[in-house]
């Protein structure tokens, strides 16, 4: 691909905006539109944008991730929240929440559902990027 300076510059800025929006969607999911799935897909599309404007090799050097680990880690987190509620004698996947006063942030709601959602997020990011990179690498 030709070295397209303006595309690269735009991509650099856009990716940061998309990624921060993705994180916002993930964290806001419990009360506003968003959540693990949406955040993950948003993240994935940011990375896809990187792949499209730069080439695959360059990005692979920057993001040295092995995506199958993402799937495993995410699943362990998601199942782990379920099992941890069992340890306290509640049915599998019972979620809890509480309000806490933290310095600077003020009144913050903490939920175990968020941990579960982060697990979902990691799995979906892993799945999407694994699929896309695998297909893209198959040039033979």
């Amino acid at each position: 691909m030709k070295n397209n300076v303006s595309l690269h510059t735009m991509t650099r800025i856009a990716v940061f905006i998309i990624l921060s929006f993705a994180i916002y969607l993930l964290l806001a999911g419990h009360n506003n539109p968003g959540g693990g799935f949406i955040g993950a897909l948003m993240t994935a599309s940011a990375v896809v944008l990187l792949y499209i404007s730069f080439d695959l090799k360059t990005i692979k050097n920057v993001l040295e991730f092995y995506f199958p680990y993402f799937i495993g880690t995410g699943l362990i987190i998601a199942i782990g929240t379920g099992i941890s509620s069992m340890i306290f004698g509640y049915p599998f996947l019972t979620q809890f929440f509480t309000h806490a006063h933290l310095p600077i942030l003020g009144d913050v709601e903490l939920t175990t559902a968020l941990v579960f959602d982060i697990g979902v997020y990691i799995v979906v990011v892993g799945v999407t990027l694994l699929i896309i990179t695998t297909i893209a690498e198959d040039d033979v």
Binding site: G29, H30, P33, G34, F97, E109, T111, A113, D117
Partner: peptide, 10 residues
């Protein structure tokens, strides 16, 4: 019960 306002996500 779940402390969330986005019912779909809850």
């Amino acid at each position: 019960f779940a402390g969330g306002d986005n019912v779909v996500n809850v």
